[in-house]
């Protein structure tokens, strides 16, 4: 049986001080100086996968990990191999698309799954940068597997189905889902990934990840708005004198600064 976990490496935004908030040309916040962490929901997904593998005695489960990003993910990938992930896959991002482009990452992951079919795909429900929560849905749609979530725990798996605990508007229910499926992990029963020992890491020191290319979309990803939306122009209590995408840039640069000054 094959299980794949998709995870994202993110800057640790809890360490971002107010005085360090600087807008980039791409209308984001510069975070290059922040340490990286595994997105917390993905971290739960990784640990749930390991626990499922450990407690399933009837048949072996081969677990793989997938991420899209640059070489900063390599340390985590090596740790995952040390913990027993059979395959670690990194989609290399040359154009800096991955931070907000769920579409690109989902397309890449879907292509990988089509080539290497998986019985169950796990991923966290959202990441702190981007925070759109659509990745799981996109993957599910592209590979035509049902999406269940947000799940809290994976109780049991057999060759036909997986039993999970699902969070459902303040209640928890048990659900049996036919395989293959996509599981979206929310506030799970476990939040931290176990730690590989030095000896485990040394055993995999000569191994490497598999590298694939990102499936960049054909179109230009960032579309410029054609008209000024008065609500956008007034956002953050700042009235921009500019139009269109220039208004958005102006508000993010100057409007945000004004709001911060008032705090």
């Amino acid at each position: 049986m094959r299980l794949l976990v998709s995870f994202k490496i993110c800057p640790d935004l809890e360490l971002l001080r107010e005085e360090d908030i600087i807008l980039t040309e791409e209308m984001g916040i510069d975070t290059h100086f922040l340490p990286n962490i595994i997105n917390c929901y993905d971290e739960s997904a990784l640990e749930l996968a390991l626990r499922l593998r450990d407690k399933t005695k009837e048949f072996p489960i081969e677990i793989s990990a997938f991420t899209a990003g640059n070489e900063q993910a390599e340390l985590t990938l090596k740790s995952l191999r040390a913990l027993g992930f059979a395959h670690t896959v990194r989609a290399e991002d040359e154009k800096g698309y991955t931070v907000f482009s769920s579409e690109t990452v989902a397309e890449t992951l879907a292509a990988y799954i089509k080539e290497y079919p998986q019985d169950c795909i796990l991923l966290g429900k959202e990441a702190p940068n981007g925070n759109n929560g659509i990745m799981a849905g996109l993957v599910s749609e592209k590979i035509k597997h049902p999406l269940i979530g947000p799940i809290l725990d994976i109780i049991f798996i057999d060759r036909e189905s997986v039993t999970v605990l699902v969070s459902d508007e303040g209640r928890i229910r048990k659900q049996i889902v036919s395989l293959p499926c996509v599981l979206c992990v929310g506030n799970a029963v476990i939040s931290k990934l176990r730690v590989a020992t030095l000896r485990e890491r040394m055993k995999v020191s000569k191994t490497e990840s598999e590298y694939i290319s990102l499936a960049y979309p054909d179109h230009e990803y960032i579309a410029a708005p054609k008209e000024v939306n008065p609500m956008i122009a007034k956002r953050a209590g700042y009235q921009s004198q500019k139009d269109g995408s220039e208004a958005v840039r102006d508000i993010l640069r100057n409007g945000l600064q004004k709001v911060l000054e008032q705090i």
């Binding site: 990286n36 390599e74 340390l75």
Partner: peptide, 10 residues
Amino acid sequence: GKEHFSHFAA
């Protein structure tokens, strides 16, 4: 250092 600086000094 890995616990502190892996983002620039792995």
